[in-house]
């Protein structure tokens, strides 16, 4: 059975845990703790280690879903979980402060995953902001990283259908990148 390992990244309150719960076919393993810093995010709990879920795409293919803690002070978990991951699904709360800058920061932080398999951005709570914000993302990303190609979607983290679109886009990206790399390796082997 082949498998993919996908990381759900993004700031606190973006909907990572909710998205994994919406997608997973198994009961999600969560490590939530009471949120004692309600000024940073007004939600009762926060992820402090990881979330874990699974999807069987078909009989021969499984996708493992790992969610990282959103707060920077848990960044040691980011590196641990990124080691095995092939791509990242970056969720950003569109009505948060400076969402475009936040997205760019996270793309830079997880750039190794972009190179390895890809990154897809999901804008959550996008119904609360002007539609032009999505174009703003694309423009800001293109200005900041002209050679980087990252799809941007709006999504409801609670919706299995929305999150499946994002996830399958990312998985397709990962598989395409892996196929290209395998083909390049084969070509360079033949050239020798």
């Amino acid at each position: 059975m082949s498998e993919h390992v996908i990381l759900f990244v993004g700031p606190m309150g973006a909907g990572k845990t909710t998205a994994i719960r919406a997608l997973s076919e198994i009961e999600v393993v969560s490590t939530e703790a009471a949120n004692s810093d309600r000024d940073a995010s007004d939600k009762p709990t926060t992820t402090v280690a990881l979330d874990y879920g699974e999807i069987n795409v078909n009989a021969a293919e499984k996708v493992r879903l790992y969610g990282v803690p959103g707060q920077k002070r848990f960044d040691f978990m980011w590196s641990i979980l990124a080691e095995r991951a092939e791509g990242a699904l970056l969720l950003v709360n569109a009505d948060a402060e400076n969402p475009v800058e936040t997205a760019i920061e996270y793309v830079k932080e997880f750039y190794a995953l972009y190179e390895r398999g890809g990154i897809v951005i999901g804008l959550t709570r996008a119904d609360l902001v002007p539609e032009s914000l999505i174009e703003e993302y694309a423009n800001a990303l293109a200005d900041e990283m002209p050679d980087v190609l990252i799809p941007v979607f709006t999504a409801d983290a609670r919706s299995n259908a929305d999150m499946t679109v994002l996830l399958m886009t990312l998985v397709a990206n990962v598989e395409l990148k892996q196929a290209v790399m395998a083909s390049r390796a084969l070509s360079s082997g033949r050239a020798r």
């Binding site: 490590t31 703790a33 004692s36 926060t46 402090v48």
Partner: peptide, 30 residues
């Protein structure tokens, strides 16, 4: 705190108490 904020620490000035608290929080939750 359960979500990894150091409330009070003793000894070990060379150790980053905030990082230690964050790691302890993750370890406990796992």
């Amino acid at each position: 705190t359960e979500d990894g904020f150091s409330v009070v620490s003793i000894a070990g000035a060379a150790l980053d108490s905030n990082r230690f608290a964050s790691m302890a929080s993750s370890t406990q939750a796992l």
